[in-house]
Structure formats: C-alpha cells, structure tokens
Write a protein that binds this DNA or RNA. Structure first.
Length: 482
RNA sequence: GGUCCCAUCGUCUAAUGGUUAGGACAGCAGGUUUUCAUCCUGCAAAUCGGGGUUCGAUUCCCCGUGGGAUCACCA
C-alpha cells in the first residue's frame, strides 16, 4: 500500500457545470496538488436518460479554462482503466457478483407501481420509506432483468468520522436495501462510486453536505463488501442570495462558462470560489491557483453554507482586470468592441487606444462595457455630437452669455497646447480654471466636447478626442450659442 | 413526518477559554482636478435565545429557536 493522496471530481454529463460543482472540483484538485497526489476526473454517466451530448467536452473545457488539470480523465485512462463509468460495467458486475455470492444482494421482485404504493403508505403514515420492510422472504436468482438490491448486512446506528464535520452519526432509519444495479444494467451512483473509488485508489472523497444523510447507506456497502472506508470530506453548500437554499440551476445558477462569456476572468472565479467555504486563516484575499495550492488545507474548510455574493465577485473581477497588461485588456474587450463602437463613423484605432485607460478605469466586467457601448455611452467619441447648449451652463451660472467668452478663451489656450497627455492639457487649462472658477470653466469645456452631462473629465475627454476635434467641438459650441 | 447537519456584522469570514470580537464586499460620510465613474480616508455594523461547566466563554455541554439536507431503478 502507498499513502499517496488521490482525489476525484465526478460529475455527471448533464451539460451544466454550476459553481457549486466547480468549487467541489477545485477543493479536490487543491488537496491533491497540495499533497503531490493525483486528481482524477471521472464521468458518472450511468443515467442514460439525463445524458447530454457534448457534456463531457463541456466539463473539460470548464476545468481547463480555470487551469484545473487532471492526472486521469475521460481522455486519459489510468492503470485502473477508463474514467468513464459506462466503460466500467464489468467492474460493477464483478462486485455485484461478490455481494450476490455472499447473500447480500438480491433481485427486486416488485413493479414500479407496487413500489409507489409502498411509498405512499409510508408517506400517509408520516414515516420514512424503507424498502427493507418489504424485503421478500426468499430471493430468486438474479438474471439481470430486474434491479439488484443490497441486503443491508447489519441494521444499526452508524457513526463515522468526517474530516470537516468531525464525528457524524445516523440512525437505522437511514439504512435501506438500496439499488446497486438498475434494471437497465447500469449501476446506481450509490454503488458505482464506491467501486470506482476502490479501484482508483481514491483516498479522500470531497462532496457536498447533501451526501451526509446517505453516507450510512454507503457505509453499509463498504461493510458488505468488506472494504475500507475512504476519508470523507464534506463541503458546505453554496447558497442563494437570500440564503433560502442551495444555489441550483433553477434559481438562476449559471454555468461556469457563462461567467466567462460575461467577462469574468478565470483568476477571479478561482479566487472567489476558493473563498466560499474555505479561508486561509490570514487576511490575504488574493490568491493565484498556485498560491491556493500552497495555502489550502482541510482544517480551514467551513462547516456552514455560504452565500454566493455576486457584488463581491464583480469587485474582485475589477481587481484582476487592473492587473491585465494593456494588450491583454484590448484582447479582453474585443468581443464587446466588435459589434458596437467599432462600427461608428469616427472609429479609429488611435482614438480607441486613447480611450482605453478611461474605459479600463471604469470597467468591472466586459458585459457591462458592452451594455454601455450599446447604450451609446461612448458615442460622443466616435460620432459627431448634437450639442444641447442648455446644458453648457454651470449650476446657477447666469446663462450662456457667460459661457461664450470662457469657451473662446479655452480655444485660445488649447490652440497652443500640447495634447500629448491628459496631464499636459490640464496643466495648460488649470490656471484659467482657477482664476474664473473650476466649475465655471471645466463644466462647459467638458460638455462642449462630449455633449453629455455625465462623462469622463474634461482633460481626458479632450485628450481622447485629440486636438483638432477638440477645437472643432469647442468652436461649434460657440457658434451654436451665438 | 422521521433522520441528520449547520448557526460571528446585510454578505464572505478571522479569533479553536482571556482581543477595544479583526479583515473584505455592500452601505453611509468626507476627500482627490467641475459631473458620472475610479481611487483614497473615515464611520456604522455581528457572537440566535436560555441554561450550565469555568476565575473567565464566540469558543466546551444541554435545551430551545431558526435555517438547510435527505427519505428515487438522479447523481
């Protein structure tokens, strides 16, 4: 026996990878990497009816996007064989046989209708449904056409150790003759994951706390088979905003790749997800995947559920966006630019590049930028403006008669000004603004250039438009007043 | 209904018997070159309730309360 740590992430290929799943994958990955162990990606495709084509690729793409790599996976069989459960039916049959031979598994003689009646009876009696109370006296030979059930080896209270929760226990009510192999020949999750974990040498099972209550059922299978338990690592749930329940697909939980589409960076998602249900026990809040691997440890996994706080996610994305090189930022924005401002009449690369720092300063998310582009927030840069002279006047200024001489003076100043940076423009205009009043000068300047009441500051606006355009707009504003 | 799990600012969390209960997001107030945004500074904000144990409980135990999970030929 070796003591190598082996963890796995075992999604079913249903075409959807929500953040809860990803967080589970991440923790399992981190723990394996931290301990120089193996991380296995196993596909649990034993329910043919729920399977979605392309889902396996989708799962892999999601993990790859985040930089979560696996040692064995659907594309990479291990010494134990395939990582896809539907390829492993022989194993399940083999162990099913073991249980049958031990007298601990038997075919289920009932029809679905009969079971429904039992279930209803239990419900009416306000009791949990227990199949084993209806266990047949004698068993026929299993011919594979009926579901194969476990005969619970011992009805007892189970107590076990969880690496996060400590000692857990559950009563006899949680033990039942669960189905091992379905009538269609495929194993259930309950059975298959145990066989696979055994054959793959999985040492630590990370999974959500919804599995706590079924753990006694699993334990009875381990016992029936006479195999050792792995370590159980229960992860806390990720909850909806209102804390009402676990974040699920029908509560608006998004697929991880939808976050990519919106413009969240993989670094953001990784960092943020790691901090729901785990903490470094320090005040550090930014972690790369490598740093997470370094810092990760099971004893700082949280017991209680955590709300997915999308506002904080947005904030964190801004922090990561700030770290991007200008080239990477241009690349990042491309999908938003392509369909929007790039089609405007005055669009040109140079102007766009002068605009970039301003966009960047304001940007938390690409999708938000795209929305702004579509709403025309930056149209003043790439389109002639239709200035409404009424908004040129500053606050309680006496009116446009004051604005005109100020704009003329600004034109005067700017004609001899170097437009090489916003700072240079500021330096040229500042003394005059101080002399007359900042608002009185800078407000009309900015509005004349942008045509908007809300926009970037006058120096940046002038810089972005460039000298000729800026002067032209100021002159046009003057002409319009007269 | 049975069984099980959980419980620190609105949210993510730190403090594993001794702290003015710390940090971050959000909020509010100021400030940085007029507006919006960004950024900076500051403020406000929590140990679910009741019993124990202890010199001392956020921390340990019990009982409540609240929330969650589970009781499939789904995983």
């Amino acid at each position: 026996m070796n003591d190598k740590i082996i963890t796995r992430f075992a999604p079913s290929p249903t075409g959807f990878m929500h953040i809860g799943s990803i967080r589970t994958a991440l923790f399992a990955y981190l723990y394996a990497r931290k301990n120089h162990g193996d991380f296995i990606l196993r596909i649990e495709d034993t329910d043919k009816s729920r399977e979605v084509t392309g889902a396996i690729e989708h799962i892999q793409e999601s993990l790859e996007w985040l930089g979560i790599s696996w040692d064995y996976g659907p594309n990479k069989p291990g010494p134990f064989g395939s990582c896809i459960q539907s390829d492993r039916l022989d194993s399940y049959r083999k162990y099913a046989r073991v249980l049958i031979d031990k007298g601990l598994a038997y075919p289920d003689p009932y029809t679905a209708e009969e079971l429904d009646v039992f279930r209803q009876q239990a419900k009416d009696a306000k009791k949990p449904f227990l199949y084993r109370l209806h266990r047949p006296e004698s068993f026929a030979e299993w011919d594979g056409t009926k579901a194969l059930r476990l005969k619970v080896p011992e009805i007892k209270r189970y107590t076990w150790h969880d690496e996060v929760r400590g000692e857990l226990s559950a009563g006899e009510e949680m033990l039942d003759d669960i189905i091992l192999i379905k009538a269609d020949g495929y194993p259930t999750y309950n059975f298959a994951h145990i066989i696979d974990d055994l054959e793959m040498g999985v040492t630590h099972i990370m999974r959500g706390d919804e599995f706590i209550s079924s753990t006694p059922k699993f334990l009875s299978i381990y016992d029936a088979l006479g195999i050792p338990y792995p370590k159980f690592v229960t992860l806390p749930p990720i909850l909806k905003d209102d804390k009402s329940k676990k974040l699920g697909k029908r509560d608006g939980a998004k697929d991880i790749l939808d976050y990519r589409e919106d413009g969240y960076l993989p670094e953001t998602m990784l960092n943020f997800l790691a901090l729901i249900g785990w903490n470094p026990a320090t005040e550090q809040e930014f972690f790369s995947l490598t740093e997470l691997t370094e810092a990760f440890s099971i004893d700082h996994i949280q017991k209680s559920g955590g709300v997915f706080n999308s506002e904080k996610l947005l904030w964190m994305n801004k922090r990561y966006l700030d770290k991007l090189s200008i080239e990477d930022f241009i690349e990042y924005l491309k999908p938003a630019v392509a369909e929007t401002i790039s089609k405007l009449p005055l669009f040109d690369e140079e102007t766009y590049h002068r605009l970039l720092p301003t966009i960047r300063e304001r940007t938390h998310l690409r999708q938000a930028v795209k929305n702004e582009f579509e709403a025309g927030e930056y149209d003043w840069v790439f389109k002639d403006i239709d200035l409404d002279t009424k908004i040129l006047a500053w606050k309680n200024d006496s009116g446009l008669s004051d604005v005109l001489p100020r704009l003329e003076k600004l034109i005067n100043i700017l004609e001899t000004t170097d437009f090489s940076s916003p700072e240079a423009i500021k330096e040229a205009v500042w003394p005059y603004a101080e002399e007359i009043g900042r608002g009185e000068v800078l407000w009309p300047m900015r509005v004349a250039i942008t045509g908007r009441e809300k926009s970037p500051d006058p120096f940046n606006s002038a810089y972005i438009m460039g000298k000729p355009q800026t002067l032209e707009r100021l002159k046009k504003a003057c002409a319009k007043i007269v």
